[in-house]
């Protein structure tokens, strides 16, 4: 198993190098440099030019790339042009909010996906299965941002059940008060994300159950006289849940990427909203850092999926 994981990690290295090179070149195409954020009415152009020379911005691009990667490893992405603060600090503040949103969304996704997948697989071909399939079709086919908009219009502005912006209300006080306010702010977006992103998990689970129902070990168990409930729960379900565990990494990265629309529409101060704000404010250093961060998160999500898979399914290990 360790061999598989090691191999998988080594395979990731060229991907990280190409990804960072790509984003570095993208960043080079953007106007401005790390010192644009330091320019105030009191700095003279010669000072900036001196700083640029000292920071090596006149070096060839590959030298700059190596030092950029070196700084990125230490979490140094320069200064925000717009906010005059270190980029890492700004992202750190927002990352916490996105994390809360992602955790609650994952919980809701699985709370919906697991029973739905089990029912659809168990009652394959019945109206239960058909309805779940139809629901999944709709959730996969509708562009998500439209659903967020309709929901915020109906439940946020119309019925006033949920707040329409922010992550925590200013009047909230006390430990539990603040937690309650936070949950109150993320509950509607998380429910929507959960409703819209469970389709692939449901389908994996359903087809796993449908396939496993016909396996020989299930027939063996039945012919031994094992009660149907035990056959389903212990034999069919347990084996069908394994791919779901492996799919976990992809779900996480999907949620982070999809949060851009949700955070923008719900004015939720997370990383997705920060990204859109930084693009609108032409805050190039924040933009670059976020793109790199999301790219690496996607890679790690895939890695996590593969590692989980090699733990739960010994067949794919390389020995």
């Amino acid at each position: 198993m360790w061999k598989t994981i090691l191999r998988r990690v080594i395979l990731m290295i060229p991907q990280i190098i190409i990804l960072s090179l790509f984003i570095f070149l993208l960043a080079k195409m953007m106007p401005g440099d790390p010192f644009t954020g330091l320019i105030t009415p009191n700095t003279s152009p010669s000072q900036i030019a001196k700083l640029r020379q000292e920071a090596g911005l006149n070096n060839p691009w590959y030298v700059q790339y190596v030092s950029w990667v070196g700084r990125a490893f230490h979490g140094d992405f320069g200064m925000s042009y717009a906010m005059q603060r270190p980029v890492t600090e700004i992202i750190g503040e927002r990352a916490v909010n996105t994390l809360y949103l992602a955790i609650l969304s994952v919980i809701i996704t699985y709370v919906i996906a697991i029973p739905f997948g089990v029912w659809a697989g168990r009652y394959e071909g019945t109206w239960i299965d058909t309805s779940i399939q139809f629901y999944n079709f709709i959730s996969m086919s509708t562009p998500s941002f439209v659903v967020y908009l309709l929901a915020i219009a109906a439940f946020g502005f119309g019925l006033k059940w949920f707040p329409t912006s922010g992550s925590v209300s200013v009047s909230a006080s006390g430990f539990f008060g603040i937690i309650a306010s936070r949950i109150y702010h993320i509950i509607l977006p998380s429910i929507l994300i959960g409703i819209l992103t469970n389709a692939s998990t449901v389908q994996y689970l359903r087809s796993g159950i449908v396939d496993n129902k016909l396996e020989d070990y299930v027939k063996t168990a039945r012919s031994k006289g094992v009660p149907e409930r035990v056959v389903f729960n212990r034999h069919i379900l347990r084996n069908s849940l394994l791919p779901i565990a492996a799919f976990f990494g992809n779900v996480i990265t999907g949620l982070l990427g999809g949060a851009i629309f949700a955070e923008t529409i719900f004015s939720y101060p997370g990383m997705g909203k920060l990204f859109i704000d930084s693009v609108n404010g032409r805050d190039y250093s924040v933009m670059t850092a976020l793109v790199l961060l999301y790219g690496i998160l996607t890679l790690l999500g895939n890695l996590l999926s593969d590692i989980i898979m090699s733990i739960v399914d010994p067949r794919i290990r390389i020995d």
């Binding site: 991907q15 190409i18 990804l19 790509f22 993208l26 195409m29 953007m30 106007p31 990427g257 851009i260 990204f275 859109i276 693009v279 032409r282 933009m287 976020l290 793109v291 999301y294 790219g295 996607t298 890679l299 895939n302």
Partner: peptide
């Protein structure tokens, strides 16, 4: 193909369209 798959699509689209 794998490389393109790991790119954060929406973000790259937005960044390139902006610059």
């Amino acid at each position: 193909t794998d490389f393109f798959m790991i790119l954060p699509a929406l973000m790259i689209q937005i960044v390139v369209i902006t610059i």
